[in-house]
């Protein structure tokens, strides 16, 4: 609509975007990958995972919520930011119980893929081994809270895309978790296997039953190419 273009730089590369666009969206359009986890196109930016943190004119900001501004300098792929990013991803691994080797999501998991892209082979922080619950009450869907990273995609998708309110956060701080709109069980809610909320989880916390390993390991989304490859226009080497 607007004729106006905003010009700024990401790691010295000039990027153009439209007013109101976020740094992340403008970067995507320009073929520059800013790592992210909670963000999902079509949902309001949640701004919770903090993986997309960039430095804008010297100040840290979440690229998914920060609008672009004329003449600003954005740092994205620097050693310092990569260090903090991998620390954050590391935190997600140790706050849950993520056993990639048994997880149906392995190979399609954004958390796992991002860890590989950031060069994390094993977490450096001590595992917290929390006690988490599993809800397999529903005939078609199950929730495994061991793997939840509290990205909020299911909460928002259920509200904004499905017009329901199947999921919501309860508790606070380290006790925060995903709950369902019933006293106890997912099967007591109006969730449906075709809900967007059920098909949007970046990790293996919400999965569909009877689909385990339909796609063999080795042929999954991130088996061939690292996460973010679709965004990057050129074939610059990925470490």
């Amino acid at each position: 609509m607007s004729e106006k273009t905003i010009t700024f730089t990401i790691d010295g590369v000039e990027v153009k975007g439209a007013p109101g666009q976020t740094i992340l969206d403008a970067a995507d359009a320009a073929g520059i990958y800013i790592p992210r986890l909670c963000h999902f196109k079509g949902l309001n930016p949640h701004g919770s995972c903090r993986v997309c943190t960039v430095i804008v004119n010297g100040r840290p900001q979440a690229a998914c919520t920060q609008p672009i501004a004329e003449g600003t300098t954005v740092e994205n792929d620097t050693e310092d930011i990569k260090k903090h990013r991998s620390n954050i991803v590391d935190m997600m691994f140790v706050e849950g119980n993520h056993f990639c080797m048994f997880c149906e999501k392995s190979g399609n998991c954004e958390l796992q893929a991002l860890a590989y892209r950031l060069g994390i082979c094993a977490p450096k922080y001590p595992f917290q081994f929390p006690d988490c619950t599993l809800d397999a009450s529903h005939p078609d869907i199950f929730i495994d809270r061991n793997r939840c990273i509290l990205c909020g995609r299911c909460v928002q998708a259920s509200k904004d895309l499905d017009g329901k309110c199947v999921f919501e956060f309860v508790g606070r701080g380290a006790e925060k978790k995903i709950a369902v709109n019933a006293e106890a069980k997912l099967s007591d809610t109006n969730v449906d296997v075709t809900d967007r909320a059920v098909n949007i989880c970046p990790v293996g916390a919400i999965l569909k039953k009877r689909e385990g390993f339909k796609i063999p390991i080795g042929e999954r989304m991130y088996d061939a190419q690292p996460i973010g490859s679709d965004i990057e226009s050129d074939t610059k080497s990925i470490k």
């Binding site: 919770s48 903090r50 993986v51 001590p126 917290q128 509290l150 606070r172 701080g173 380290a174």
Partner: peptide, 21 residues
Amino acid sequence: FVEESCGYCTPCRVGNVLLRN
């Protein structure tokens, strides 16, 4: 801070626990 973090974002929710430990 561990007690009072709202838990919305990862670094505060997890990082404060790790700092305390």
